[in-house]
């Protein structure tokens, strides 16, 4: 899935030599994929206030300042690094927009609040719903979405994240493994297990209805 990028060594070399110029080139090559990630991770509540392109642009600015952090991290695939930068940017944006809320969240976290289970799941469902098109289609899919949401809600955080990475961000297994900091074989196992689990829950949900 990273055919568009050369090997890390080559990238490192180019970045060392040409710095931002090289970054721009590689960044551009994967821009589409980064957009997909932004699209998926950008809090649905931000609606039209922040556009994907804004995030991408700001991520670029951030990444350009932090080229060395990539160079320092041996063994970190370029795309996975960029993805991390995107996520950090998103964090900042979310904090900026939900500043007040964030403080509350922080307060609550301090003493622990456990009700908002399944953050990824919320995001998944909101993502699907937000991008859905006509109301009639929505009605049609509402049931499926409800089941998916419920199913994802019943899965554990990591499984949910694996599905998010593989299916929504469309990362490869290697990238997923790097992102999660686990071995590729383990990541693959997780993913397959998560898919299986999804299927089981879906099946039993069908039986009930």
């Amino acid at each position: 899935m990273t055919e568009e990028l050369p090997q890390r060594d080559e990238i490192v070399e180019a970045l060392r030599a040409e710095r931002e110029e090289a970054l721009a080139k590689y960044f551009f090559a994967v821009q589409g994929r980064l957009k997909r990630i932004v699209n998926f991770r950008l809090d649905y509540r931000l609606g039209g206030r922040v556009s994907e392109s804004d995030v991408i642009q700001e991520t670029y600015v951030r990444a350009a300042k932090r080229i060395d952090s990539f160079l320092d991290k041996e063994d970190m695939p370029f795309f996975v690094w960029l993805r991390l930068e995107v996520n950090q940017k998103l964090h900042e944006i979310h904090r900026h927009h939900f500043g007040a809320e964030k403080r509350d969240v922080r307060k609550e976290m301090k003493l622990g609040k456990a009700n908002d289970s399944g953050k990824t799941s919320m995001q998944l469902a909101a993502h699907i719903v937000a991008k859905l098109t006509s109301p009639s289609r929505l009605i049609e899919r509402a049931e499926q979405i409800a089941i998916l949401e419920k199913t994802l809600g019943e899965m554990n955080e990591l499984d949910r994240e694996v599905i998010a990475l593989r299916n929504f961000e469309e990362l490869s297994n290697i990238e997923t493994a790097k992102t999660l900091g686990i071995e590729p074989a383990a990541a693959s196992k997780r993913y397959l297990r998560a898919l299986k689990r999804l299927r089981e829950i879906m099946e039993s949900a069908k039986k009930f209805s």
């Binding site: 699907i128 499926q144 979405i145 998916l148 599905i163 299916n167 929504f168 898919l195 999804l198 879906m202």
Partner: peptide
Amino acid sequence: ASVAMIEKLKP
């Protein structure tokens, strides 16, 4: 089946 479901629901 799981993959198909997610990918189809996904925009």
